[in-house]
């Protein structure tokens, strides 16, 4: 949801290591990040901050994939995603799902090595092979919406191959 942007970011974990000079914070063990309806769970989260606060988080899945979920604006629907790593930039509102990435929203599902989800525009873009991790293909399943009487036409989904 757009309102998420204006909410504080909460992070919980087993341990935390702060490097005061570099202004970095590494959370480890059962890491849970929440910001409004946005939820992210990981084994490790590297947080960067500046004077205004939280700027970005790089989440790593060591024992299990990183999981991400956020509610869509003005409708009861969630976008969910997993990846070996998920980067969340709170300034640009961009979420990058990296490595065996999968994103699901209602009937749509997309897989790839790199999926870039724009939380502001609520659109996503899948990139087949991320340069570093070898060949990969994008597989997108976008089922046409069933024409129920009186439902608003489905919004165009920005899934570009």
């Amino acid at each position: 949801e757009k309102a998420d942007r204006d909410k504080p970011v909460h992070v919980e974990s087993d341990t935390l290591k702060v490097d005061d000079a570099k202004q970095t914070a590494v959370y480890e063990g059962n890491v849970v990040l929440t910001q409004g309806t946005l939820l992210l769970t990981a084994d490790r989260l590297d947080v960067r901050q500046d004077e205004q606060g939280f700027t970005s988080g790089e989440a790593h899945g060591l024992t299990k994939p990183v999981y991400f979920r956020q509610k869509q604006e003005a409708r009861d629907q969630y976008v969910e995603g997993v990846g070996k790593r998920i980067d969340y930039d709170a300034v640009t509102d961009i979420v990058k799902l990296i490595g065996n990435a999968r994103l699901k929203r209602g009937d749509e599902e997309v897989r790839g090595n790199l999926i870039i989800y724009d939380a502001k525009a609520e659109t996503y873009r899948a990139v087949g092979n991320e340069p570093t991790s070898g060949p990969g293909r994008v597989r997108a399943v976008i089922k046409p919406k069933r024409k129920e009487a009186g439902t608003a036409p489905a919004q165009p989904v920005g899934a570009k191959p």
């Binding site: 204006d6 909410k7 504080p8 970011v9 909460h10 992070v11 919980e12 974990s13 087993d14 341990t15 935390l16 290591k17 702060v18 490097d19 005061d20 000079a21 914070a25 959370y27 947080v47 901050q49 004077e51 205004q52 606060g53 939280f54 700027t55 709170a90 300034v91």
Partner: peptide
Amino acid sequence: EDPIIRFGGKVRSVYEKRG
């Protein structure tokens, strides 16, 4: 002097809304 700070025992952080 430029400390490395290690927290343990259930950490809970809050980052306020960006200014």
